[in-house]
Amino acid sequence: MAEQPRLDMARSQVFGEVAELYDAARPGYADALAEEVLAYAELGDRTAVEIGAGTGKATLPFAALGTPLLCIEPDVRMAEVLRRNTAGFPRVRVQTGRFEDWQPDGRRFGLVYAATSWHWVAPERRWDLVHDALAPGGAVALFWNPHGTRDPRLLAALAEVDRRHGLRQTPHSASASDYGQTPGDWADVLEWPEEQCRRDGRFTDLRAVRYRQERYYDTERYLGLLASVSAYRVLPPERLERTLADTAEVLDAHGGGIAMDQLTDLFLARVR
């Protein structure tokens, strides 16, 4: 699988503009995911490192299971919300900065994980950085939560709005029926990490898991979700307003919301 072009770094810096909206609108991950990852990692009392923790959508399920966590978040505004959300978990520490600039300082960790953030890490360095942070046998867990629209008529109507406003790869641009049983079968823009990990050669016991659940967003909540997505955040304000208004018009004409399949696709590997 060919390496995909790295996403524009400017897009990785826009989430902090709407940190509170991001926290309120973004969905979490499959309920069973944290337990699956921890069972694989056999972490014990060792600390886990989270790359690009955001406001804590994936942090809280691990923290609730008692996991010692070091959360690395590049945006100070997102980190502020993250600290507030994890205030009740004394084993969670938050460090502001880019994963590429973070120094383990000789420490070796039992788990490094990234929740919808791996694609923001420099592709030419990320496997080296993860390997250098992990103890022998330590685990890496990478996961995303793509969506698929269930109603074909709504999908077509939203596709016309996206085309008119020059948007591609929006949360609703795939059909729920497009997804099969194979984790990563959506990865035509963001490379699924398995092949690159195999080529690296320093990791073993590669596994992939898919979870699926149904979600329904009413118009207001779905617009909030879209407004937290980088493809929308980089639009000029007037264009963003028009795009969301046109999307709302379509959603309201189709029952006032959108029914979706949310997948959680998980990739696991461990240091040899």
Rank of each mutant, 00 (worst) to 15 (best):
residue 201 G to S: 07
residue 94 V to M: 14
residue 101 D to R: 07
residue 260 M to D: 06
residue 156 A to S: 13
residue 72 I to Q: 09
residue 272 R to V: 00
residue 51 I to R: 02
residue 138 G to L: 02
residue 183 P to F: 01
residue 64 A to N: 12
residue 235 L to I: 00
residue 23 D to H: 14
residue 34 A to M: 06
residue 197 C to L: 13
residue 163 R to Q: 14
residue 249 E to Q: 14
residue 176 A to D: 03
residue 198 R to P: 08
residue 13 Q to F: 11
residue 6 R to L: 07
residue 248 A to S: 02
residue 104 P to E: 07
residue 109 F to T: 01
residue 229 V to R: 15
residue 76 V to M: 13
residue 250 V to W: 10
residue 95 Q to D: 07
residue 240 L to T: 03
residue 161 V to H: 10
residue 11 R to T: 03
residue 223 L to Y: 14
residue 141 A to C: 05
residue 210 R to C: 09
residue 142 L to A: 05
residue 158 L to S: 05
residue 58 A to D: 06
residue 114 A to E: 10
residue 220 E to I: 01
residue 272 R to C: 00
residue 196 Q to R: 15
residue 96 T to R: 09
residue 79 A to H: 12
residue 163 R to Y: 09
residue 43 L to Q: 06
residue 92 V to S: 12
residue 258 I to L: 12
residue 208 A to F: 02
residue 72 I to K: 10
residue 99 F to P: 02
residue 108 R to I: 00
residue 221 R to T: 13
residue 240 L to E: 15
residue 237 P to C: 10
residue 88 G to L: 09
residue 202 R to L: 00
residue 136 P to Q: 12
residue 132 D to R: 12
residue 109 F to V: 00
residue 36 E to Q: 07
residue 111 L to V: 02
residue 176 A to L: 00
residue 160 E to K: 13
residue 260 M to R: 13
residue 257 G to F: 05
residue 187 A to E: 00
residue 181 Q to S: 14
residue 68 P to W: 01
residue 128 D to V: 05
residue 161 V to K: 11
residue 104 P to V: 01
residue 22 Y to D: 06
residue 44 G to K: 14
residue 196 Q to T: 11
residue 212 R to N: 06
residue 147 H to G: 01
residue 142 L to S: 04
residue 50 E to D: 08
residue 231 A to L: 10
residue 226 L to E: 07
residue 113 Y to V: 00
residue 166 G to I: 01
residue 50 E to Q: 07
residue 25 A to N: 09
residue 54 G to A: 02
residue 202 R to D: 08
residue 18 V to E: 13
residue 48 A to N: 13
residue 181 Q to R: 15
residue 48 A to E: 04
residue 150 R to W: 09
residue 224 G to A: 11
residue 114 A to Q: 08
residue 245 A to D: 07
residue 235 L to W: 11
residue 22 Y to V: 01
residue 141 A to R: 03
residue 96 T to W: 05
residue 139 A to F: 01
residue 50 E to G: 01
residue 3 E to L: 10
residue 77 R to F: 03
residue 75 D to I: 00
residue 249 E to S: 11
residue 90 P to Q: 11
residue 3 E to F: 10
residue 2 A to F: 12
residue 165 H to L: 04
residue 131 H to W: 04
residue 251 L to G: 05
residue 24 A to I: 05
residue 183 P to C: 02
residue 119 H to Q: 12
residue 32 A to L: 05
residue 221 R to K: 14
